[in-house]
Write a protein that binds this DNA or RNA. Structure first.
Lengths: 232, 232
DNA sequence: CGGACAGTTGACATAAATCAAATAGAGTGG
DNA sequence: CCACTCTATTTGATTTATGTCAACTGTCCG
C-alpha cells in the first residue's frame, strides 16, 4: 500500500514507448525542442496514483504494468471504469476538466511517465500531431466504453467474463502465460458482478480446462471454447 | 417509416442553434468565410439517418427532436448506446473512422443540419475553436458513457429507470410536460432490461403517482420520489 | 368494424446476489 | 521449519431480481 515512488527526469528520445506515445509523430529535433518536464515514476501495486476529485495537474503514459480507473459509489461499492495496459494514457481528462474523473490505482508495479497538463495543453495547441494523437486515443476510449455498455446491457455473466479474459490476453500478445494481477473483486467491479459469482465462473472455466491460474499468472488453454461462450 | 426528407441550404448566421453549435466561438465574418455546404434536413420519426457500417460522409447537428444511436447484435437484439437531444452532434466518429459506428434512428420528427465530413476536417485543422468544440463534445460523450457503465454495472432496474427519467427531463428544462417518444422497448434497449420489466416498473411509478403519461408526453409529478429511488 | 401493435399483467423459469461457512494460500514471527 | 494469522477464494443454501412465455387490453387507424 505504500508508494514506493522513484522519480527521475525522463529521456523521451530513447524511450522504448516513443513510437506508441502521443509524441509518435514528432521528429527527434521537435522532441528535444519541447522543453517539457517529463518525469519517470515507478509505483508499487496497490498505490493510488490520483483520486477522483483531485485537482488535475498531471497526465501520465503507462509504460509498464496495469492500472484500474475506478469510480466509487456512495454505498461503498465501486465500479472499475477502465483497465489500462502498457501504452495507454491516463489523467488526460484534466485537459478540459479541473478535476480527475476517476481514481487511478496500480494493479501491479507500474512505470509511468508524468506530463505537466499545462505544458501539455500549450504543446497540443502548437503541434497538430500531438493534438491529433490525443484526440484519437479519446475516440478509442469512447468506442471501448460504448462496447462495454453493450456488453453490460445485453450479455450474461459467463459471456462477459469470457470476453474479458480474451481481451486481457490481447494486451499481452505472444505470451503464453499472462500477468494477471486482478482479484475476483476487481473482476466483479469491472464486470458488474458479485465476487462470488465471478469466483464460481472462474472455477468452472478452470474445471473445464479452459484456464490455468497461479499467483498472478493466467494461462488461457482453450481460447476457442472461451470465444464460443463469449458470443452466447 | 418513410423518409419525409426536406433539404435546403442552411443559413448558419441566423441559426437559433448557433451559440450552442461547434461554430459557437466564431465571429459572423468567420462563419461567412467558411464556404461550407451546410444543409438543413427534416426527417419523420422512425427514419434511419445512417447505418452502422455505412461509409461516413456526413456529420450532423441535431436542431430539434430526439435520436437514438443503436448497436445491433447478431441475435437480433439491440442496445441503444446513446440518446441525443437538441444541440447534440452525431456522425462525428467519421472524422477518424471510415464507417459509422452506430445506426442513427429518429425517435420523433427531427431537424438536422448536415455537414460534409471532409470539409469539416479541413476546417477543424484551420480553426482551433472548432476543433476545440468538437473535442469537448467528445469528452462529454465519454463521461456520459462512463457514467452509464457505472449505472449498468451497479444499479438495479428501478434505480436505472428513475435516473434515466430524471435525466431525460433535464433535456427539456422549464417544461412541465415532456416530449417522450420512447417505446417500452426503446427504454429496455437503453437500460439493458426486458420490455416487460420496464413496463412493470413504469406502471408501478404511475400507480404511485410519480408520473403521468399520455401519447408521447410524460409528466414527472414527483421528482423527489424518483430521485430517492434512483440512488438506492 | 377489424387489424395491428404497444402496453399490461400473470405465472413461471432462470440468473445472479446474498449470507454463511469452509478452505486454501501467503506472509509473519518464533 | 513450523504454527499462526490474515485474507482471498471457493462452495453451498437460499433469496431476490429479472427474463421469458403467454394471455389479455387498449388504442390508433384504415
Amino acid at each position: 500500500m505504500v508508494a514506493e515512488e522513484g522519480a527521475k527526469k525522463s529521456n523521451c528520445l530513447r524511450c522504448a514507448m516513443r513510437a506508441r506515445s502521443i509524441f509518435a509523430g514528432l521528429s527527434g529535433e521537435e522532441l528535444c525542442a519541447l522543453g517539457m518536464d517529463v518525469i519517470d515514476l515507478e509505483f508499487a501495486g496497490g498505490t493510488t496514483i490520483y483520486r477522483e476529485g483531485d485537482s488535475a495537474s498531471y497526465a501520465y503514459t503507462l509504460r509498464e504494468g496495469a492500472i484500474k480507473l475506478v469510480k466509487s459509489l456512495a454505498d461503498g461499492r465501486a465500479q472499475i471504469v477502465r483497465l489500462l495496459h502498457h501504452g495507454d494514457l491516463l489523467g488526460f481528462e484534466g485537459l478540459h476538466r479541473e478535476q480527475h474523473q476517476h481514481t487511478a490505482i496500480a494493479l501491479s508495479t507500474v512505470k509511468l511517465c508524468r506530463l505537466d497538463l499545462r505544458e501539455l495543453d500549450l504543446l497540443s495547441q502548437r503541434l497538430p500531431a500531438v493534438r491529433e494523437a490525443i484526440f484519437r486515443r479519446w475516440q478509442r476510449a469512447l468506442e471501448e466504453a460504448e462496447s462495454r455498455i453493450v456488453d453490460l446491457g445485453t450479455r450474461r455473466a459467463e459471456a462477459r467474463l469470457a470476453t474479458f479474459l480474451l481481451q486481457w490476453a490481447q494486451a499481452y500478445p505472444q505470451r503464453r502465460s499472462l500477468p494477471f494481477p486482478l482479484t475476483r473483486q476487481d473482476l466483479g467491479e469491472f464486470l458488474g458482478l458479485s465476487t462470488e459469482h465471478v469466483s464460481r465462473i472462474m472455477a468452472d472455466f478452470k474445471r473445464r480446462n479452459w484456464l490455468r491460474e497461479s499467483r498472478g499468472e493466467l494461462e488461457i488453454l482453450d481460447p476457442k471454447a472461451l470465444g464460443a461462450v463469449s458470443v452466447s
